[in-house]
């Protein structure tokens, strides 16, 4: 039996009442998921479905109102739960005054990686994301794609067992997308777990073992990609649109 890597049990997240509203905003409503070791898990849903909130709970940014969230069996509120994970946010959120090498060194220190080992990993990751020519330049001089590659490198600095990717290919050019896909595939081959959200359903279909589709904070469907395709006898995009109740309007 494979280890449970991401475990959500009846997760509920409410945001405080906005002015003019009498009920709190329910971002996630009774969501339960179980992602096993070695899986590439696609977390899908339209904008505002609760995907990012769920990821924010997993990463400890947001506190759950109810239910339970665990990483490697440890409550996500415990910082140790994040020792074995790598996180790539949708946009690049790094210190612009530091160089790629300094950023990687900083995160290596945070993980308590020894200097020699950190040097080795930094060299390898800089090569992996093809930033050798710019590794000593401050990030403010980088293009968006280059910054995203730094993001990918920092997410891998601790050699994580679980990689959480929030729309990793958003805003990337085709080469960048291919690179991310290659890395996901490589991690999968190494037996790592990847949990990622994406709007690129074709990509999800290609790389994911299992997917979950959420809408309005609730789980609408979950299963192996092949099983879902067989069950609905249509492509993932159509399954997604049907499950969220999308009705195409005639263009007049």
């Amino acid at each position: 039996m494979m280890e449970s890597v991401v475990q959500l049990k009846n997760l509920r997240v409410e945001y405080p009442i906005a002015s003019g509203s009498s009920v709190p905003k329910l971002a996630v409503n009774g969501l339960s998921l179980d992602v096993r070791q070695g899986e590439v898990f696609g977390f899908l849903g339209p904008n505002g479905a609760g995907k990012t909130t769920t990821m924010n709970v997993l990463l400890g940014f947001v506190n759950a109102t109810g239910g339970e969230a665990r990483l490697f069996g440890v409550n996500v509120r415990e910082p140790i739960a994040r020792q074995r994970i790598g996180y790539l946010p949708e946009l690049t959120y790094y210190y612009k005054f530091l160089s790629a090498e300094e950023i990687l060194r900083f995160y290596a220190k945070v993980f308590g990686i020894e200097r020699m080992e950190a040097d080795r990993r930094i060299d390898r990751l800089i090569k992996l994301v093809e930033l050798e020519h710019a590794s000593k330049r401050p990030l403010k001089s980088y293009s968006k794609g280059m910054q995203q590659r730094v993001g990918l490198a920092q997410a891998l600095i601790n050699n994580p067992d679980l990689l959480i990717l929030d729309e990793p290919t958003s805003g990337l050019d085709p080469i960048g997308r291919m690179k991310v896909r290659e890395i996901i595939q490589r991690l999968k081959n190494e037996g790592k777990t990847v949990f990622f959200s994406s709007h690129e359903l074709g990509e999800v279909e290609t790389v994911c073992d299992r997917v979950a589709i959420v809408h309005q904070g609730q789980l609408r469907e979950e299963g192996r990609v092949a099983d879902l395709l067989a069950k609905y006898k249509t492509g993932l995009e159509q399954i997604f649109l049907d499950l969220i109740g999308y009705k195409p309007q005639a263009i007049t």
């Binding site: 990463l59 940014f61 946010p89 946009l91 210190y95 995160y107 959480i164």
Partner: peptide, 10 residues
């Protein structure tokens, strides 16, 4: 938003 990659670490 530099707080996010930081707090995503232990």
């Amino acid at each position: 938003r530099t707080i996010f990659p930081l707090l995503a670490k232990p």
